[in-house]
Simulated assay, not measured.
Amino acid sequence: MRRAKITVIGAGNVGATCAHWCAAAELGDIVLLDIPQTEDMPRGKALDLMQASPIMGFDSNIVGTTSYADTADSDVIVVTAGIPRKPGMSRDDLLNTNAKIITSVGEQIKATSPNAVVIVVSNPLDAMVQQMWKVTGFDKAKVCGQAGVLDTARYRTFLAMELGVSVEDISALLMGGHGDTMVPIPSCTSVGGIPVTQLIDRARLDEIVERTRKGGAEIVSLLKTGSAYYAPAAACAQMVEAVVRDKKRVIPVAALCESEYGVGGYYVGVPVVMGSGGVEKIIELDLTDSEKADFQNSVDAVKGLVATMDQLLSS
């Protein structure tokens, strides 16, 4: 039985760290790709990571390249390509440049790995994954976006810090777009099975949610010259594992919702079952009226972002 072939497009901090997590977990053989202008950089990172394998005890063949030919017939492709956020920038500021990059990447994926499950990480996430699906023409189950796993991880981290408990005992869910309009679902948040609303008052919970919404910007402001990469890369690796090991994980991802939640054909963060087929099922929750209103507000923001992107790309 052959190992899974995992391609990571973009060998920057998120991409290289994703390759690191995937290799360490022995999820498969890895191709780390970047643009030709980077010359030998991806080869250097791949070789460095390979040389860690005897020390850390993992078996993965890791190749660095600038040629899409080396990515052919990948089982899973993680797309981190694009310019990162800088202090003072929102995810939306990246829209025009990254939409063009995603279009180019999507065309290459379609030509070289037509059966791959594609996980998009590039920002602004919800618009970028919509564009990837449009360009590749892949089945909607095979194209999804990583955001919900990261957002939920940040939320769980802050809740654990607040309560002084293990992150392992925090179960939580966030839905909607990746950004300031993301929607917490208190009814799906618990600590060791105890509803979080019994442990944290609503005002304090709202403050934690707000910090979660701005979690990426907080790290950008601290780093000064870059954006988060350890947690985003770990979130990608969890999604890759769900696919290559057919884990059937119930996790929040950006998935194409048509009749679900009344979205009508847009990518937005929702809970799904993720396995070897990609997004195998979207789970529809019975949201409260307040949650429905917040979710619709988030969907409307995504729709506006996609409309702006389409206008920019057609001009």
Rank of each mutant, 00 (worst) to 15 (best):
M1K: 13
M1L: 13
G12R: 08
G15F: 00
A16P: 11
C18P: 08
W21G: 04
C22S: 11
G28T: 07
G28S: 01
L33G: 09
D34Q: 09
D40S: 15
P42C: 05
G44Y: 13
D48Q: 15
A52Y: 15
G57N: 07
Y68N: 06
I77G: 01
V79S: 06
A81D: 03
I83H: 10
K86L: 14
P87F: 01
R91V: 12
D92H: 14
N96D: 15
N96C: 13
N98M: 05
I101H: 04
I101T: 09
I101C: 03
I102V: 12
T103N: 12
T103Q: 13
S104P: 09
V105I: 13
E107Q: 15
E107V: 11
A116M: 00
Q131M: 13
M132L: 03
K134A: 11
K134N: 11
F138M: 07
A153V: 01
R154E: 12
M161L: 14
V165W: 08
V165H: 07
S166F: 05
G176N: 01
H178C: 12
P186S: 01
T189I: 07
S190G: 01
V191I: 11
P195N: 04
T197F: 09
D201V: 06
A203C: 04
L222P: 00
A233L: 03
Q238L: 14
E241S: 12
E241Y: 04
K247I: 06
I251H: 02
P252M: 01
V253I: 08
A255Q: 03
C257R: 05
E258K: 05
E258M: 11
E258Q: 12
S259A: 12
V263K: 06
Y266I: 07
V270F: 05
V273R: 10
M274A: 05
G277V: 00
L285D: 05
D286R: 04
T288Y: 09
F295H: 02
V299I: 12
K303C: 05
G304T: 08
T308Q: 15
Q311H: 15
